[in-house]
Write a protein that binds this DNA or RNA. Structure first.
Lengths: 225, 225
DNA sequence: AATGATTTGTCGGCTATGTTACAGTTCTAG
DNA sequence: CTAGAACTGTAACATAGCCGACAAATCATT
């Protein structure tokens, strides 16, 4: 029964959909299944054995701390996303951890080495996984080049657009996003100061392009972003 | 004989070193083997069939053009590097091309689909390749976060340091780099205006940290960068 | 050797954005 | 219900680095 649970938790992910029950049993080791609450911190890069994680429920942010102690948001992970040592290469020096944003999350994980074995036995999965990593790379490239070449306003617009696309719910002609980020979070994601983010958001609100509150963000007309 | 040539040209790359002669024959299709001269432009994203390229000799830059016609340097490719559709996913919209920087280059290429077949038959190669793509991703992340969080001067320093490490020749306690980039190129790589790059380089020269000419750059004391 | 093209050098004004600083608002935990 | 913490709002000021403009130097081609 517990075995079955594990099975479904992985099967769920599109990457693993092609695998048989038996094959997933090979990856028998969802050694970790964890729940956590808002604000909790989950260390993963420095964990004993390198792992790959799968977020089953909720939202987390990946935060990196540099030498000077500055925090930067590396990524926002949503339900269904993989995170951790996706490159299959343990990286001791990257000083990253995950912080829970939503009220509670559920995470499962498996050992990198076990995953490698599975890939070796399933070339087509290996290929899919490579493409998956590649896609991730492309996304990163894209968002970074936005960060570099556009000004803060454009970056905010782009961010909201992406967010709406990923998680927004269309209600009539508006898009409603559940807002689990603080303005500071948003600022960090689009790489600007909190103040500028605040200003821009307020500006958009007075313009009537969005309705902002701590609970949700409503975008009037997504095509105008 | 010609077959043998192809073989060696691939065998050369560390990724393919583990493959047998026969396996490389499977990838029998180094359909392209091309030479080009300085300034030439090589289109690859829009090429008929998606390919993966291997630069055998020389240096090229990967340039992307955005909607407004602005050119940005995406990458500098050196002898031995792979480039092209590394993610194994044809990408029609990325408007990229390669421009030859050194006096002449030699490039060989093979079809993405053939490469995929090879990966399917060689799980361990697939794994290596995944790690290779992963590594590339990590590098990109790294350099981008430099671009974002550091100022132009630090970026230039970092760039010179990397360049020296990759290509510099140690002569006594100095490092000499063959300079095939214009100041404009450098500016684009570190994402600043040409003027600022010029200013910073001159500043470094008067400081005595580097000796700059169009042919070569000499770094006095690399540890001081 | 000459001419045009490319690359480099330099300057002053301008703008977006970070910084510092503080006040008001909303949430949270006891 | 209340105090403290965490967020949000606003403003003045400083500045890195972009941009336009143009001159000087170097390279490439005939």
């Amino acid at each position: 029964m517990y075995e079955d649970l594990k099975y479904w938790y992985l099967r769920d992910h599109k990457l693993f959909r092609t695998l048989s029950f038996g094959q997933i049993r090979q990856l028998c080791i969802i050694t970790g299944f964890k729940k956590a609450k808002k604000g909790e911190i989950i260390y993963f890069s420095s964990s004993d054995l390198p792992r790959i994680f799968l977020l089953k429920k909720g939202n987390i942010k990946i935060v990196a701390v540099d030498e000077d102690g500055n925090e930067t948001i590396k990524d926002i992970i949503q339900k269904g996303d993989l995170f951790g040592e996706l490159t299959l290469e343990a990286d001791s020096q990257s000083n990253e951890y995950a912080k829970v944003l939503s009220n509670d999350v559920a995470i499962c994980s498996f050992l990198m080495s076990d995953f490698e074995d599975l890939l070796l036995r399933n070339p087509s999965l290996a290929l899919s996984y490579t493409k998956f990593v590649g896609l991730k790379m492309k996304r990163i490239k894209n968002s970074y080049s936005n960060l570099i070449s556009k000004d803060a306003k454009t970056r905010l617009f782009q961010f909201l657009k992406d967010w709406a696309e990923k998680e927004g719910k269309k209600i009539e002609d508006k898009v409603v996003i559940e807002n689990y980020l603080t303005q500071n979070d948003i600022a960090q994601i689009i790489c600007t100061s909190r103040q500028t983010a605040t200003q821009l958001l307020n500006e958009m609100e007075t313009n009537g392009t969005i309705i902002y509150s701590r609970k949700e963000i409503i975008i009037r007309d997504i095509s105008k972003l």
